[in-house]
């Protein structure tokens, strides 16, 4: 599953970051690394963008950005 399928406020772990090289690299450098705990804290209408909590920070991610992050439930 990706972040888009994750129910709100449910903890999961990052499995991998797919998608374009420049985006996945950027996400990795921002701390979206394998095994890290992650959850969705809020969603705009149509779940775009999503507010995602990781490593003590909250990020707003667009749909395709969130869709490139594979997660598994904790």
């Amino acid at each position: 599953m990706t972040l888009l399928d994750l129910p709100d406020n449910t903890w999961a772990r990052v499995e991998s970051v797919d998608g374009e090289e420049s985006l996945s690299r950027r996400l990795l450098e921002m701390g979206f690394t394998e095994g890290e705990c992650i959850r969705v804290v809020a969603a705009s209408p149509f779940r775009d963008p999503l507010a995602v909590n990781i490593r003590g920070a909250v990020f707003a991610l667009r749909k395709y950005e969130a869709g490139s992050i594979r997660v598994c439930l904790l």
Binding site: C37, V41, A42, V58
Partner: peptide, 25 residues
Amino acid sequence: HRLSICMPDPLTARLDRVFLHPAWG
């Protein structure tokens, strides 16, 4: 312990429930 480090501070989290709510926000 890891999750408590990972979460945003409680005040920000509470306010964000309103600020980022699809309708209330």
